[in-house]
Each structure stands twice: as structure tokens, then as C-alpha cells.
Design a protein around this nucleic acid. Sequence first.
DNA 1: CAAGTCAGTGAACAACTGTAACCACAACCG
DNA 2: CGGTTGTGGTTACAGTTGTTCACTGACTTG
Lengths: 208, 208
Amino acid sequence: MSHTSGVRQAQKQKTRQALLDAALGLLEEQSLSSLGLREVTRAVGVAPTAFYRHFRSTADLGVALVEEALGSLHPMIRTTMAPAEDDDERIGRAVELIARHVAAHPAHVRFVARERHGGVQPVRRAIREQLARFAEEVKAELAEDASAAGWSEADLRMLAGLYVDQMLITASLFLETLDAPEEERRRAVETARRQLRLIGVGRAHWLD
Amino acid sequence: MSHTSGVRQAQKQKTRQALLDAALGLLEEQSLSSLGLREVTRAVGVAPTAFYRHFRSTADLGVALVEEALGSLHPMIRTTMAPAEDDDERIGRAVELIARHVAAHPAHVRFVARERHGGVQPVRRAIREQLARFAEEVKAELAEDASAAGWSEADLRMLAGLYVDQMLITASLFLETLDAPEEERRRAVETARRQLRLIGVGRAHWLD
DNA sequence: CAAGTCAGTGAACAACTGTAACCACAACCG
DNA sequence: CGGTTGTGGTTACAGTTGTTCACTGACTTG
């Protein structure tokens, strides 16, 4: 037990992070369900048995990766959903934000997209829980918006879910076009903007 | 080579189908990238080396599964997108159709959802190609619709892609709630209907 | 400073993997 | 009918896997 600091704890965290990083790298070309514990330790340069000091199994490591990939993303919801003068400006900002995030953390995005429906149940559940939290937060933001007057609880939830799914689709699309020619990337951005705009139009005329 | 029929060819197809079926079953609890060739042959009850008579590798088998899961689905596009008197009736019919398909072929749906972003590149590409075909077909249907007057090519493509993605999201949602209590399943159907309706509203007011 | 804690090591295990070479025998074709 | 074709079976190999156990030695604590 003891306290949270100290050279000992720091070294342990460092190794743990090295395992997470190595796993994330290896997962670019395979799924978690085929990731071997030895494979990870080999990539780090540590004995296979050291793995157990940090994770019970590769599934356990996967859950930790979900936390790392999505856990720190919640604060971004407020700023993304924050109202702007122009609706198109908000859309442009959101798309830009997603593009930037994908470019900065491609491995994390790939991991989430891949394991959301992947073969490891605990990881699927962890992702589902995080996305449900996102939807909840988006819903809360939507409820504060002026145009939400008269919207039922179920409608708000539906729209929030639609937005979250759309964010993932967009992120995944950007990921696929990461090292594609400039022109294709611009088309992807344009498609994402249009889709969000169409949802926005539907939202504006929902109560007709 | 020789001709396509005969007792010989029939038996081979039978074994091949058994391999596909066994693989599909095993893939309910893991991803393709962790599926072993021996695992599949063991489930069928044939020798490991017999696998090579039908597939070069498990990735090759995966591509065949994509064909099996999505190849025969194209004719359904026309009937699903076909216009109806009521817009809500069309939506209800489409959702009903998806629900029925998921209930009839849950393993196929799970496979596609899982491997769309999975760790096996040839399979990802095969799925992407099939989905692109779907989008193309949906776009063709949309273009024939009366309400498509004034829509640009890019807008039609965008909307078609949105519909295809939404179909997958809906199918995946239904899959998750397959063995959930009746009430949760009804909520899932209701959510799917609402989301399609919102897209429909956006579509109706797109040219404002 | 002595005692204890614990991250990481090394060897060993049984079980598993993909693949190669060779064989058997039923269906096919001339 | 007799020779050829080719699906599937058998045996074997070299690597890999997850997990166990006892261990070391640097850090922490009283």
C-alpha cells in the first residue's frame, strides 16, 4: 500500500505505460482478441511474467486502453457543443476538432473503432459505458440549448445518440483517409460537414 | 477444373460451407484475427490440412464470409427504399426489415459489424467495397425520388452514405438487444425510427 | 540501519499453432 | 474399363502461447 509517490511507484507506472503504448502499437495491425501477452512484453523488453504485475490479462489491458483513449475526452464535449453565432461555424469547429484529434491520436481512435464491436466482451462493455456517458453529456448540452424547447426526453436521447454515433463515424472516416491524397481528405471533411448540417436541419424542423 | 457439377464438386462445396458455418459460429466470441485454422477444422471434424483445399488462409475465409453476409443483400435495397404513401410507413417498413434480418442472421450481422474495422485488412477492404456498392445503389434510388430535384451529386452521395451507416448502426443496436427484455427491444426500435425520421425531416428541408 | 516489500527475472510446463510431405481412395474422363 | 485427378487423412516439425514457481535485488519503512 503505502503512499502514492516514490521512486518505486513511478517506475511501475512507467513500465505500465510502456506496456500500454506497446500494445496500442501492436493493435494497429490486429485485434485485441489476438494480442498475446508475450508479444507485448517482448515489444517492451521485459519478461513475460512482469505483465501480471500490471494486468490480469490482455482483456484487462484493453479496458485500461479504453480509459486512456476515451476517459480524458469528456471535457471536450462542452466546448464542442457550445453554441456559436453561426450554426455552420459550430459544425466547422466540431469537424475541425475531430480531425485534429484523429491526427494527434490515430492509434487510440483506431482502437476504439475496432474494439467497439470487437471480440472481447469486457472491452466492448467499457467502450459502451464511455459512449453512454458521452451521449448523456451531449444530451445535457442539448437540453440547455434554446431550440430544445418542446423536445421530449426520448427525442433528446435519440438526437444525442445520433450525434455520438456520427462523431465516431466521422473519426473513423478521417482515420481511413489519414494518409490519403489531400483532395480525398478534403472530400471527407466536406462529407462530414454536410452530414452534420443535414442532422442540424432535421433538428431545426423536428417539431413541425 | 472440369464442369461445375458432379458428386465430387458437391461434396467439396458441402465441406466448404461447413467450414464457413463453423467459422461464423466461432467468431461470435472472438475476432477473425485470432481465429485459428485448426480451430475451424476441429469444429467441422476434418483434418487441419483439408482447410487449404478451400481457403488460402483464415483471412481468405473471412473475405468469403463477407460475400456470404452482404452479397445477397443488394436486391433488398430497392424494396426498402421504394416509395410509400406515408413517409412514416416507409421508415417503419425499413426498420422492420432490418429487425427481421438481424433476427434471422445474427452471426452474419455481428461478423460484419466486428470486422468492418477489424484487424484483417483484406476483410476490411471487402466490407468497404460492399458498403460502397450499397451506397451507390441507395444513391441511385434517391436520385429517382421526386424530392431529389435540385440535389447536387455530392449531396446525394452524402445522404446515401448516411443511410448506409445508419442501417449498420441500427442493425448493430438490434443485435445488442437481441436477447434483452421485450421493453428494451421496443425502445431500440423506437430510437431507430426516430433517427430515420429526423434524417427524413432534414432531407425534406435540405434546400432551404 | 535492519527488516520487509515487491517489480521484474529465468526456467520449465503442457498445450497450442501453421505448414510441409506423403498417402489413401473415391469420383471422374477418355 | 484403367488411368488420372484431387479431396481429405496422417504424421511430423519447429514455434508459439499462457501460467507456475522460486528467485533476486533495489527501494521503502519503522
